[in-house]
């Protein structure tokens, strides 16, 4: 292949010029995201420590957080129901690297928590337990962030083990 320098050499006006290999062009765009009506219902219940799920009118599956549609039926979820603060870890990983702009101390345990009564896992952190002891099937409960209760999932600090025996794999096998 012809190198950039060789190409430049062929243009008399640019003879001897250093090729430009990098320009930094900062760009800033601002967006105001809106969560939509289903997520708004979910978020506004969080300051009251309420976990509002929604049920699909067709397949009766329960979604939390609700996202506005049952993704398999393509219809709006409208029936709301409140879920308990307890659930089961269906799978997890331990994150050992910090992502830019993500204000979480590493390592941390990122888990799918199947709240009791829900059919999809809630993405959450699991804490108050050595990470080597976190396991699939473990029973956990929400620990609320008392200082930062607001319309955000940050209202839940993390989930911690309840100490109950592990859940029967049949209870979550289809929803993991």
């Amino acid at each position: 292949m012809t190198t950039a320098a060789e190409l430049l050499a062929g243009i008399p006006e640019l003879a001897g010029a250093e090729p430009v290999t990098r320009v930094t062009i900062p760009a800033r765009l601002e967006y105001t995201h809106t969560p939509g009506s289903a997520q708004t219902r979910f978020l506004t219940a969080l300051p009251d420590k309420r976990l509002l799920a929604e049920r699909c009118p067709q397949c009766t599956r329960v979604y939390v957080p609700p996202r506005g549609a049952c993704p398999t039926c393509g219809v709006a979820t409208t029936e709301q129901l409140e879920l308990p603060h307890t659930g089961t870890v269906t799978t997890f990983c331990i994150v050992n690297i910090a992502a830019k702009g993500l204000n979480i101390e590493v390592p941390y345990c990122y888990a799918y928590v199947l709240l009791d009564g829900a059919h999809v896992g809630l993405h959450a952190r699991v804490g108050d337990v050595p990470y080597a002891d976190v396991r699939i099937g473990q029973r956990v409960e929400a620990v609320w962030n008392e200082e930062r209760l607001g319309p955000s999932l940050a209202s839940i600090s993390h989930f911690r083990p309840t100490g109950e025996p592990d859940a029967d794999p049949e209870s979550y096998r289809r929803w993991m």
Binding site: T34, P35, G36, S37, G74, V75
Partner: peptide, 26 residues
């Protein structure tokens, strides 16, 4: 503006409308 709607909430009624016109399902 459609501040009260997520993208899926904006799109879904239109999908229902167009499918209903033909009697087809997704």
């Amino acid at each position: 503006r459609t501040d009260q709607l997520s993208e899926v909430e904006l799109v879904m009624p239109v999908l229902h409308d167009v499918l209903k016109q033909t009697g087809l399902t997704a």
